[in-house]
Design a protein around this nucleic acid. Structure first.
Lengths: 216, 216
DNA sequence: CCGACTGTGTTAATATATTAACAAGGTTGC
DNA sequence: GCAACCTTGTTAATATATTAACACAGTCGG
């Protein structure tokens, strides 16, 4: 354990958490790194090493107690208390993100979804009303929200983010296909869906070229 | 150049492409690795190295011709011909993905969006009608589609993917929060939006803990 | 045409991440 | 309570990725 965990490790923790949630739902009480490997796609060695960064959570000869490990992971990631967040941009993607997290992600609480288009305001997603962006600062300040998901068109993203940072947001999950400039200390994770698709296409094309060259 | 490019490099190529598209739209003809660095967030050294994997595309003392480099990147990624793809699952996310790519991603052509729910069938996204999944095999086979985006609920994802692979799909962008089992040779990229959010929260909590410990 | 400058492409050095190997701890059956 | 068997946690070896350094090629002003 001890020395700080690297980015790659942190990215895998939520995967472990999800698998544990599923195992617990199926009343599995003990799990080995090998089974976790099958469920996650990462190697068993890597999983053991990842977990060892934060402590010794398993029992030699047996494996990991699912419930106990889940609790530890929640604490490590910081999900042991519900994180409040807002969604900016109530297009199809913003709505999808909001509804999905409300229904399926118990570790976060969406306290507001906002849109610049007044026509959207008033529409409901689950029990949550879409509100005009003008009301956003008050909500974020009052509830001391730190995390925002941004799903506005690329051309508005930087301005929106400037505003968010100005009223106390320190972490942004950015779905707009654009590089955001933020002050030191503000975290931005980019979730550019087009990039994922395009790099996937690279591998498809590699295969096709390989097939073609075999014909010679 | 020569020896094959690594995954990390491939993931950055679409970012370069997007930035180049933007520069060309603004009639910028020449760009240096330093400017690309500002626009992408990657270091200039890394950008030069990435591009050098595939050839020498720049001019020393000057920089890169935007139009020329864009053409090279398209060819490298495999986007020089429109890639056909299907979307399976016409929930909010599936609709968002479909509409976004139809409007903003000229490098792919969505040839069908399918949903198991008959109530969805007939609804239109842009000019594309949502169709029942029963019609999916015919479309994929006739048009020889190789790439699919899967945005169905997690519990159906594996079955859907089995079907897709059976009718010729070799690359899948998976939005369902589940590990997919696929035969050798089929590419799966996972775009789990919850994971991104949760690892972001990790960093927020790290900061907050740091703040707290400062008070002592 | 020459010297100062700019920015690429390549090679070397460093850091990060993954894989492998194994010792130590724990369990189970007899 | 001992022997055979598991599975973790740790340390060592390997591979990948990033950063730094710089030689080389081209431009520009005079």
């Amino acid at each position: 354990m001890s020395k700080k965990a690297s980015k790659s490790v942190i990215k895998r923790l939520p995967v472990y958490l999800r698998v544990l949630d599923n195992l617990i739902r199926r009343d599995v009480e003990i799990v080995s790194s090998r089974v976790l490997s099958e469920e996650t796609g990462f190697t068993a060695e890597q999983i053991r090493k990842d977990l060892a960064h934060f402590g010794a959570f398993g029992t030699r000869g047996t494996g990991y107690n699912t419930d106990y490990l889940r609790g530890k992971l929640l604490r490590i990631i910081g999900l042991d208390r519900q994180t409040k967040l807002v969604v900016v941009g109530a297009g199809l993607l913003g709505k999808a993100l909001t509804r999905y997290n409300m229904l399926k992600n118990p570790y976060v609480e969406i306290v507001g979804i906002f849109d610049a288009n007044p026509a959207e305001a008033g529409h409901e997603i689950g029990s949550l009303k879409i509100r005009p962006v003008g009301e956003m600062p008050a909500v974020i300040k009052e509830q001391q929200v730190k995390v925002a998901m941004v799903s506005v068109p690329a051309e508005f993203a930087q301005q929106v983010v400037n505003d968010l940072v100005g009223i106390g947001i320190t972490a942004i999950l950015n779905f707009a296909p654009t590089k955001l400039k933020v002050p030191e200390g503000v975290h931005v994770h980019n979730a550019d869906l087009t990039n994922e698709l395009q790099s996937l296409i690279y591998y498809v094309m590699q295969d096709e070229n390989k097939q073609l060259s075999k014909l010679h």
